[in-house]
Write a protein that binds this DNA or RNA. Structure first.
Lengths: 243, 243
DNA sequence: GGAATAGTGTCTCTGAGACACTATCTA
DNA sequence: TAGATAGTGTCTCAGAGACACTATTCC
């Protein structure tokens, strides 16, 4: 009994239309050595066997109660991270992106601190690594349309940095304002005036002072942590650099 | 033969996972009689037979080259409109939204001028109408999770109105600034200071003066049209009303 | 003329950018 | 001490909000 036959034997079964293949991809961003990185795995199966790709996989309708579960499950499997900042980015579906036929992928992006993350070689993958992003690309070619996805996603991230507090999710639990500013600058690819930055962040009521100071380099700096329950602040005015 | 066994017996075949049902829904907004409306159809099939629903349908992998084609095809079939403002909103996939099982829908929203639109009763639907939106809801109950989708989508639209020029796509080809302001106010659910509004719109370089004036009521008003090729302007500062 | 709508002048206020300044550390 | 990084004071500037004003129409 093939797919088609199964279909027509059921009443109200929507699959009178052949169903596209459905996957979820997760663009997992982090900062390592003052540079933006994305998590990639080497494919162990055709198509694109041996090429690097974003983290992703099929929606498992037995295991996953919704699309976001698929994303968090994938993230968990690869990084052990449980509660990242996770946002749905876009869904791409067309006839060409997968040589096996019409396929749909819902792309999420996650922001995590690289602190304490140990990458796990899961089932079906023998190689996984953080790939450095430069000019919205990584060095290695990516499978499927993942290079385009990465580019658009990096662009979206940069745009959101202009008017949100998203970069706090790339920080470890305690950090200084200078460290946070540095992360903003990495994402934007440009310097920010430090006085404006401090005014903006401290005025947003999203940070609380942590105990103690960071002693590193010269004058010690106040440590902050993200206010409990805080997820995303939207500033009413953009930083410059919007083009 | 269970899922796992099927899996391991097939190489490279993505359908080792049962595929969810995949659809596209389009939230088609327009302004009628100074109120926001959304296009709805009455369902002629189970499930939810006889209930109103958003415009949508299965991805037809024979006809549609990508997801957006599915959306424009649906829009075309129902309204005859060819080139609306169309934006992907979100994708919802879970086990509960459709009684027939795990299903995924990619939701688009479209903004069109109601001027000159004639609704078409297409195949499979015997009733179609513009439903008035009040408090992010319409009067009639909606099938599936469409009420939630409509609510979130209306909310997203309102948010974007605070910092974009999107409402111009709800206007007929020529309009006055007062008419445009009225549409902004409808979407925001609040008054805007008219001087600020004119400064903002005229400063954005997205409108050009059209020939002639609108003579209606008292003093005639300058007609404008959208600058050729213009799609969406992002202001660097929000209107008030952000909460 | 009065009412209504279109359109302007101009003040305040907020927050980003610029940049000089002070503070506190190490070498 | 000098150099580096942390942090402040304060001016300018753009654009939103407020609101009084003028302009043009119909009655």
């Amino acid at each position: 009994m093939n797919n088609q036959e199964i279909l027509s034997s059921q009443i109200y079964d929507p699959s009178i239309y052949k169903r596209p293949n459905t996957t979820v991809d997760v663009v997992i961003f982090t900062i390592i050595d003052k540079q933006l990185h994305v998590l990639t795995v080497k494919r162990t199966e055709e198509p694109f066997k041996g090429m690097w790709s974003l983290i992703g996989g099929y929606v498992d309708i037995e295991k996953d109660k919704n699309l976001e579960s698929t994303a968090t499950r994938k993230l968990q499997e690869k990084t052990g991270v449980q509660t990242p900042y996770l946002e749905q980015f876009e869904t791409i579906g067309n006839a060409d992106r997968d040589p096996r036929g019409w396929s749909i992928t819902t792309v999420y992006f996650a922001l995590i601190s690289s602190e304490g993350v140990e990458l796990k070689t899961g089932k079906g993958t023998n190689d996984i690594k953080w790939s450095k992003i430069e000019k919205r690309k990584i060095e290695e070619p990516l499978a499927f349309d993942h290079a385009e996805i990465l580019q658009r996603c990096t662009e979206r991230l940069r745009n959101k940095v202009l008017y949100t507090s998203l970069p706090i999710h790339l920080m470890p639990s305690e950090f200084t304002l200078s460290e946070l500013q540095k992360v903003y600058e990495i994402l934007l690819g440009q310097k920010i005036e430090h006085k404006s930055f401090r005014r903006r962040m401290l005025g947003a009521d999203i940070l609380v002072e942590a105990e103690g100071m960071r002693h590193e380099g010269r004058r010690p700096a106040q440590l902050y942590r993200v206010k409990e329950g805080h997820n995303a602040h939207f500033f009413i005015r953009n930083l410059e650099g919007a083009t």
